[in-house]
Amino acid sequence: MAGISKTSIARKVAMALSGLFLVLFLAQHFTINFTSVVSPSTFNEISHFMGTNFVVQAILQPILIAGVVFHFVMGFVLDVRNRKARGVKYNKFKGQANSPWVSRNMILSGSVVLAFLGLHFYDFWIPELIHKYVETNPDDPFRYYDETIAKFAGNPIRTGLYSISFVLLMLHLLHGFASSFQTMGVNNKYSSGIKIFTKAFAIVIPMGFVFIAIFHYFNNL
């Protein structure tokens, strides 16, 4: 197993699996956040469950964080190895004639997405930990909606940063999501349908997050 884990194919498969795992989290995260637009009470209810459930907090959340770190570290490792194997830099490689810009700049978009995730954890996760474990505030199942919209209301800088980050996430997913299935060897009669689905997902979900941020900004001026 140690030998297999060092092969290029094994690294790419691990990268694909971790990416698919993060896509599932992204879909789940969007579904919860979108309820803040249509039903504040539902958003509070789901957020309270996620924030107080032991399985979510003690098991799923650490797995998610580990998955994020693994995916992006593996991405950097593969990028460095690909550069060495090719023997030329990107600015000497006529990629435009052979591959789209998105596929040639996955490390760039991935780096920005990783930075955004760090900001997101700093903006939401750390304050949540402080609220519950440092300040030891009493449980309030109705606070989540107000705390969320307060992040965007009257704050064009944060709203803009989130929107730009999700646009770059869209570019990252446009290539990465479909590539994950190709890496896993999916090449059958469903391939064309999978390609359409991954492209639709890569556009709709990130743009949905942009809509949520902009909605709360303008709706609470």
Rank of each mutant, 00 (worst) to 15 (best):
A178F: 07
I130P: 00
F197E: 01
L17Y: 04
T159S: 10
V13F: 06
K12C: 04
S39G: 08
R104G: 10
L173R: 04
L168M: 14
L174N: 01
L64E: 03
L78E: 09
V80G: 10
S192C: 05
A58N: 14
G185I: 08
K132M: 05
S5L: 11
V102F: 06
N220P: 01
M1N: 10
M74N: 11
F30A: 04
F218I: 05
K94F: 08
N155Y: 03
A150C: 04
F76Q: 11
P62E: 11
M74F: 03
I205H: 00
S8K: 12
L169H: 05
M207S: 13
F197C: 07
A58L: 10
G185K: 01
N220F: 00
G75C: 10
S191L: 05
I149Y: 08
Y144R: 06
N44M: 07
K151G: 06
L60W: 07
L24S: 15
L174P: 00
D146A: 07
S192L: 14
M1G: 05
V13H: 03
H48I: 08
P127L: 00
N44E: 06
Y90E: 10
N187M: 04
G193D: 02
N82T: 03
H131V: 00
G110L: 02
N187P: 10
A85D: 12
D123F: 13
I59L: 11
Y90K: 12
L108F: 11
I46C: 11
T183A: 14
V69M: 14
D139P: 10
S47T: 14
K12Y: 04
A2N: 15
F177L: 08
L221I: 15
H120E: 13
L60D: 13
K89A: 13
L119M: 08
R81N: 15
V102W: 07
T159Q: 04
W125T: 09
G176I: 06
V56P: 11
Q28E: 02
N91L: 08
A213H: 04
Q61W: 06
A85F: 03
V77M: 01
V68L: 09
G67S: 15
V38R: 02
T136A: 07
S180E: 02
G118W: 08
F116E: 15
A85V: 05
I157T: 13
F152R: 13
I205G: 04
K92M: 11
Y122M: 14
N98M: 12
S36T: 02
G75S: 10
G19Q: 01
V112S: 05
E135H: 07
L171W: 03
H29F: 12
S99N: 04
P62D: 04
K89F: 09
S41Y: 01
F201W: 09
A16I: 00
H216S: 04
I205C: 13
F211R: 03
T159V: 02
I205V: 15
H216A: 03
F93V: 01
F34W: 10
Y190K: 12
G75A: 12
D139K: 15
D139C: 06
F121H: 09
Q61S: 10
S180I: 00
I107K: 02
H48S: 15
S179C: 09
K195H: 13
R158I: 11
L17M: 02
Y162M: 09
V80R: 15
M170D: 05
A178G: 00
Q57T: 02
N44C: 11
R86F: 12
